[in-house]
Amino acid sequence: MSRIESVMRNLRGQGRKALIPYITAGDPGPDQTVSLMHTLVEAGADIIELGVPFSDPMADGPVIQLACERALKHGTSLRNVLDMVKAFRSTDDRTPVVLMGYLNPMEAMGYEAFADAASAAGVDGVLTVDLPPEEAELVVPLFKARGLDAIFLLAPTTTDDRIKAISQHCSGYVYYVSLKGVTGSAAINVDEVARKVRHISTLAGLPVGVGFGIRDAQTAAAVGKVSDGVIVGSVLVDTISKHQADAEGLKRALTGLLRPMREALDGLAS
């Protein structure tokens, strides 16, 4: 059983929901990422999604675009990101880490080399935004052979047939993109998301994490009520951008955002 599967299974056993924060590796600087990952765990994260910076993040809004630019200014490469995961693993062998990014940096490294290095570094799952299952045959079998979960996106536009097909390729959890848009878009329609997530759960046979548009404890709880986990990204990355020069203040601010989400999610457990 993968680390992601076992975390999801334990949470389900306790009637709890996964809190999955996202930060971009190398933002605000490469030397801060590992320590921020630990902060996320202390503040209640069950799984960490670690963004691999890319020069052309087409599915991201301005907040994560700027985070990528900051990380790339420091020269953060995919290899650097794997080193960060390795360093994180030296003191935390419990919290799953999912790399989230775009295909080209992996293609440049070579898929086999990447899969080997990711597995050796202690990465648990990989979510590639611009890799639909139709194009995944060169990549996903390499992940699976090394016990890495391949996580795929589902969108409001995904048809039932595709939900079923995508779930076949996917393991760990599926990531439901709650709205049509880029990361950090406007508020989501919770009722509509709830309807769609219930439907996906019956078709997918996998835990469903919901992301895009979750920025506070209230939305987290509303979405947590109908899903297996909530993914929180842009609001954290925005906070990072505002506290770039103040490492301690940044940790406090991130904790101040995540703790109430954790409590609100745990408040759902009955």
């Binding site: 639909p132 139709e134 589902l154 969108a155 536009t157």
Partner: peptide
């Protein structure tokens, strides 16, 4: 070639 886009665009 191919079709390397995020899932939201696949249906379109």
């Amino acid at each position: 070639g191919g079709r390397f886009v995020s899932e939201t665009l696949m249906d379109s």
